[in-house]
Amino acid sequence: MNASLRPALLLVIATAALLASASTTHAQDAPAGNGSTSSAQPLSARPTVEDRLGDKDARFFAHATGTWLIRNDFYDSPGYGLDAGYYFNERWGAELRVLRLHSTLSRAGKTVLQQSGLAPDLRAPDVWLSAGVRTSVGYAKILLWDRFVTRFDPQLVAHAGVLFAEERIAPSVGLGPGVLVHLKWDLQVKFDLLLTANFERRQRGITPAFGVLPTLSFGWSPPRGGQR
């Protein structure tokens, strides 16, 4: 090979490698063709390990949710609720969430109240209404305990809404990671871990209360019309 051609050849190879790597970043954008990677495919087609089992593009979903709001506020606040949403594409989705919290004073809070009549200046949270967005940052398949093949989307979630706490209404936001696990028959399991902030007007004014809202959801995403 002519030495003068070597730099040009290296440039072509480098460009091809760059294009190939770029195509892998769009691996979740569309289902693959017939499966295995082939050197005969054009460079613009992304390499696909296997067909995506759980796709989300243009699909609704509804999940039943269990949760526990943790704020270190002397309340125990377990709850349940419902998420309902829609994925515009494989990456972006929006959802509405209603959580009913059954808050009671914690053991320490009860002791203080019974002995002194004092109570936290936060009110017991009752209902959380919010709307949010959900973005899938990837799609993965792992083998658990050498037995269970699990496909999931790591996600980022952001919510904003209001928290009803007895007679008060507090603007609230939540932000955090989540995992959406795809099961058979379009069933889904979802786990979110949101860092929350509630802005409740207390006697001393509006003071934020930061907390964590883990939610575990189970639900179904009906297939698009005509599919399956």
Binding site: N72, F74, L113, S116, P120, F210, G211
Partner: peptide, 19 residues
């Protein structure tokens, strides 16, 4: 991690329900 992320700046006050 959850505990570290939770901070409500709670003060105690007379309960609204306290006689």
């Amino acid at each position: 991690a959850l505990g570290a992320g939770s901070c409500s700046f709670v003060d105690f006050e007379t309960s609204p329900y306290a006689p």
